[in-house]
Design a protein around this nucleic acid. Structure first.
Lengths: 217, 217
DNA sequence: ATAAAAATTTAGGCCAGCCTAAATTTTTAG
DNA sequence: CTAAAAATTTAGGCTGGCCTAAATTTTTAT
């Protein structure tokens, strides 16, 4: 059984690893967990002792199979609780992260099974992230960034890559919602900002910075 | 902001205090929290420093107004989550205590407000315990024990005073459910066990030990 | 190729929450 | 009323998770 803190490290290692290739660095972990590098080293030694990560001094870190299984379990719980908070309690998608960070640590297999059923076995969380399967598989979605689409294309908004309150509220403000079909009417050659057509009558300005954080298919 | 552990102490002090009068003893707390008396003393000093309890060495402990407010807030969360687990997720009333012990510590005022609304502002948890109001009042129910009722009386089963899995499963087994109206057909003079009539055709044997833990009105 | 910079680890320490053993206070029994 | 028993507190110590400062290793830039 892992502590709250150990679970957070595993989840963070998974998330960092999936945004890059090769090993995750101590410094990156320190930044994500808002601790100091020395503290991270302490924890890595502990996780390595428990066989949850592969760790060689100065060489960065990688999850073992068991570590990845646990990380996916925690991410699964996090995303299911986010669905609950949005779909059942009516929170905005910009309000649920902190609460889900706490709820994900509730220790009961049965609770997760029942929650999943109660929610109708959702495949995605409110941010469009896929929910890992009960057996610990992370569905591969193969989306690309809106910033990589070409003028004239029509694409569907599928997920966000940035979960900050500010970013999500900005999308609320622009009335860009997941599931919308948008047509790219213009890409600015200078700043790569995008004008997209939503539905029949609305045109929305999307900066390159924002477009890079929107996943479409 | 209190720690997980401090919250548990406050809740435990409240619960012990409501089952007696006067101060709560160090030993009683040690037993309830499954720790040693010396550890309890440490924590009492800390809670006293924070003005959450009245504490004089060797004299036992009592919640301050602020301490009671916090305790009731935690108990409110606990009971709301129990309602959620039973009503929405379909758990048995004998399965939810451990999970609620964890869920009660999730820190979000807004979450509690929305959960309460989602559940339809329940007044009682699955064990018949009243849910403290948002402002921190514990409703007084004025029930009495089934063991104090007289032969011939018809009473309604309202709550249980014992929350152990074993006790609750025993009631399941006897098909004694809260809300049932039972008529006391016989009280055994020797062991004080009770025969009760449930509905029209069922008679259930209730030992004195069990009857002492059933609240009726 | 090597010196400076950056990343990482080690050493030593702090705090929360627990422990045991010993000391102290309160309660109880005779 | 006092001695034994029970309850409680104090003293000192442990572990988890964090810290700073110093040492070490790796990377980068000349």
């Amino acid at each position: 059984m892992q502590s709250f803190t150990e679970e957070n490290y595993l989840k963070t290692i998974y998330n960092l690893a999936s945004k890059q290739q090769g090993e995750v660095s101590t410094n990156a972990l320190a930044e994500m967990t808002a601790t100091k590098a020395a503290s991270v080293t302490d924890m890595l030694r502990k996780l390595a002792d428990k066989q949850l990560i592969h760790y060689k001094k100065y060489q960065g870190v990688r999850l073992t199979e068991e570590g990845e299984r646990l990380a996916l379990q925690i991410i699964r719980r996090h995303r299911l609780w986010e669905v609950f908070l949005v779909q059942k309690l009516g929170f905005g998608w910009d309000e649920v992260h902190e609460m889900a960070e706490e709820l994900e640590h509730i220790r009961s297999e049965e609770l997760v099974v029942r929650l999943d059923t109660f929610l109708g076995n959702p495949q995605f969380d409110p941010h469009g992230d896929p929910i890992p399967t009960p057996t610990g598989q992370m569905p591969e979605m193969g989306y690309r960034k809106l910033s990589d689409a070409e003028a004239g294309e029509a694409v569907c908004l599928r997920a966000v890559m940035e979960h900050s309150t500010e970013f999500l509220q900005h999308l609320n403000h622009s009335s860009l919602t997941l599931g919308s079909i948008v047509t790219i009417s213009e890409i600015n050659a200078f700043d790569k900002s995008v004008l997209v057509q939503v539905g029949n009558d609305r045109t929305v300005f999307v900066s390159h910075e924002v477009a890079k954080n929107l996943l479409v298919s």
